[in-house]
Structures are given as structure tokens and as C-alpha cells.
Design a protein around this nucleic acid. Structure first.
Lengths: 218, 218
DNA sequence: CTCATGGTTCGTTCTGTACCGAACCATCGC
DNA sequence: GCGATGGTTCGGTACAGAACGAACCATGAG
């Protein structure tokens, strides 16, 4: 066929039911793993992997590697816009969703991710920094460095970046990793705000949680 | 596959190169015939007919019958919106267009359509009526009837609607048909503003054209 | 180190559908 | 009435690609 309409390629990509299920599941902005997308689409892992690879090269998906997981998300608002326009046309009835992350509420709240803090509370910290303009594009601004230094988070350990962002398992948004993330966790434990619980759970008490939140202005 | 995403059906429909060519060709709001769409898509007539039937039942196309022709157009702005969103994604390079209508400029200007006037000048009349609120939804308003009566176009011949709209071959917009259309043509000929030319051509002279335009306030 | 788990690659099967030619129907021009 | 032309329907072919299982690579856990 003539070289013209690349648009057909994109539409055909969206036009497969399995892929549509994946894309609609990602429309709320979260990131899902390959396995989860496979489940959403109702297909096996190998098949899903192939679909994802194609969508990725077409720019319909963005990937982020995280240990042995690969998190996929929509690369930008334009994809969501196109999907919405198609939904408008199709008068979509209801998307198939799958619950993400751990079932245990304690795990969702706070837990260890390698050597740093993860969970809702950790995500809130990262969100605070981003919202306040102290973190841009996954990197600290000067304002951010100053603000953190005032709170006793000064420098790294020389082995790795001071501040990294890390995609949160349950929240599907970024929390803080790197040396900074590790320092935040050890501080919370050292101050007695929190202690290690069952498995990877981190238990913040009432007062401990409040103190933690106060430090970061949450 | 699960009953969920009708969106996939729509996207798959758009996702075929042949169909995409047809749809993009219609994006400027004109209506094209089945044959023309087949040419645009680079496929034979039977194949195009099948594609069109499917898109029609899916609500992606609207049809209008006109003698032995069938004119297809986009049913509304939502389809165009979705296509544009997809184009945005695909960074479309360039659509394949096909020239529509007759090559002869005289034919494009004015000609006979069955028993009434067609071509650019006839379309202008219909557009004038629509713009002035004298025609709504392909029907005359009271204001329109009055205005036409003032110009000597009073009633029909009893055999057919006084005023019909008719899709123009070259302009792909509506002109006036029915008894009114026939009266307009015969008036132009009777007044000496125009005369029959080669084939179906209607020749308006300089002064004839001006007089015609004056009558309709063009 | 070894095991378990998430993901990818590969080879095969199989269904869906785009396409065409031929025959058929509908409408206009004569 | 008779062609001619636009459009649809039908039957058959052929190619694309979606799906799976099995084998393989990569990473983290113990």
C-alpha cells in the first residue's frame, strides 16, 4: 500500500482488543507491569510481551525498568486524548481493570524498597518536592538541595546518585531512592518514628507518622 | 474476546490503510462517491463497497443517495476529531487526495442536473439561503418562502416537493433541486441570462451572471 | 552459589479479513 | 424498450498477525 497514512498503523495498533485493554487500563496515568497488562488483556505473558514491544516502538507506551519488573505507562497526554476520542465514538461500556500492588494495607502504607522507603507516605514526600519545584525531571533543583540540607540531608555516599526517583510498586508513582532515600529511611528508624514490621512492612506509629510528616511539611 | 472494548472495533476499522485513505479524504467535509473513494484507496469497487458498508454500520460514515451515485461523508465532527487525534500521534506526512468532479471549468461553474441548475453558482444560491436562515435542515422556513415569493418563485407543480436540496457533483455541497430548482433554471434561460452550451453546460454571460446574482443577492 | 520469578525470543498453528473477478441489481440517457 | 454506468453481492484465494508452549535470559532472594 502507498506510503501515506501512518495513521492507519497507529489505529491498527490500537485496534486489537488485547492492546486496547492494556491501553485503557493505563489511562489513569498509573504504570503497570508486563504481567499485569497480560492479565488485564486476558492473554499469556509471551503474547503480551510482543504486543508491548510493538506499542513501545510505535511510541504508544513508555517503559521504565525497575529490578526485574518493567513498568509501562502512557508516554503523554496525546495518547490518552486519542483514546478518549475513540471512546467517544465507541460509547465505551466499561473497561476491564485489575487491582494493582499488594493486598496488605500496611504494605501499601509504608515498606522497604531495597534500602529506602516506599509506599503512600514515601510517594507523598516525592510529590511534595515535585510540586514545590524542588525536583524537576527527576533531579533536584538548587532550592531542593538547600531545603533538604536544612533538614539534615546533605550528601551522598559517593557510590551512587544522591537522589534517584523510583517507581512505587503500590502507588505507581515515584518515590525517592538513592542515597537520599536511604537516609530518609534510616532517619525515621533512628528517630524512633517507625520500626521494621512483618516482612518489608515499616510501622509508623501515630506520633511517629506525624513527626515524619512535619519534617517534610506534609 | 471479552465484551468490553468496543473501542477496539472502531480503531480496527480505522486501522486499515484503505479505509484510512477514504476517511482522510473526507476530512474536509466534502462527500465522495463510492468509486471515488475506491480510487482514493487504490482498490477496486467491490472491495471499497464492502469497506464502506462496514464503516457505515459502525457509524463512521453517513450516506446520501443521489440517482445512481452514493455520496459518503463523515457523519459529524466527532469522527474528524478522533482522526485528528490519531494524526497527531502519527505525525502524518501527507494524505492522498483525489481531484473531484469534472475537469471542465465550464461544467464546474454551471450545468444542468436533471432539470435544475448545478455548479458553483447554484451552490452559492443554496448557501445564501442557508446562511440567511431561510433554509433550515434542508427545508424552507417561512422567511425563505416569503423571500422567494417576492422574487416570483411561488409554488410547486404538485408532483414533487417545492424545494429539495441536491448534493452538487463538483462542489460537494448542496444546491437547490425540486420544483424550485427547476424554476430557477428556466427563469435564467427565459430571461436570457444564460443559455445551454456543450453537453450539460449552462453558459452565463457577463451581464447574465450579474443579473442572476443580483436577483439572489449574491 | 542456587532457586524462584519476571520477561523475552522462537517456532508453529490457526483464524480473520482484505482483495479480486464475475455475476447481478438499480438508475439514468436514449 | 435498450445500452451504459454506478454499486452490491458472492465465492475463492492468500497473506497477515494473534495466540500459545517451550526454551532462554536477567534479576533479586536466601
Amino acid at each position: 500500500m502507498r506510503e501515506g497514512p501512518y495513521i492507519a498503523e497507529i489505529a491498527a495498533l490500537i485496534g486489537d482488543p488485547a492492546r486496547t485493554n492494556m491501553l485503557t487500563a493505563l489511562m489513569d496515568g498509573r504504570a503497570l507491569t508486563v504481567s499485569e497488562l497480560a492479565q488485564v488483556a486476558g492473554i499469556t505473558l509471551p503474547t503480551a510481551s510482543g504486543h508491548i514491544a510493538r506499542m513501545e516502538t510505535a511510541g504508544l507506551l513508555a517503559a521504565e525498568k525497575q529490578g526485574r519488573h518493567r513498568y509501562l505507562r502512557l508516554p503523554g497526554p496525546d495518547v490518552a486524548t486519542a483514546l478518549e476520542a475513540l471512546m467517544e465514538l465507541a460509547q465505551r461500556t466499561g473497561a476491564v481493570r485489575v487491582r494493582t500492588g499488594p493486598r496488605d494495607p500496611a504494605l501499601r502504607e509504608a515498606r522497604v524498597c531495597y534500602d529506602h522507603l516506599a509506599g503512600a507516605r514515601a510517594v507523598a514526600v516525592a510529590a511534595k518536592l515535585a510540586d514545590a519545584g524542588m525536583m524537576v525531571d527527576h533531579g533536584l533543583t538548587d532550592a531542593g538541595r538547600t531545603w533538604l540540607a536544612e533538614r539534615g540531608f546533605v550528601r551522598g555516599d559517593g557510590r551512587r546518585p544522591f537522589c534517584r526517583t523510583c517507581l512505587d510498586w503500590s502507588e505507581r508513582r515515584h518515590h525517592l531512592g538513592g542515597a537520599l532515600g536511604a537516609q530518609i529511611l534510616s532517619r525515621a528508624l533512628a528517630e524512633g518514628w517507625a520500626r521494621r514490621g512483618e516482612g518489608r512492612v515499616i510501622d509508623f506509629g501515630q506520633r511517629g507518622g506525624a513527626a515524619f510528616d512535619r519534617l517534610f511539611g506534609l
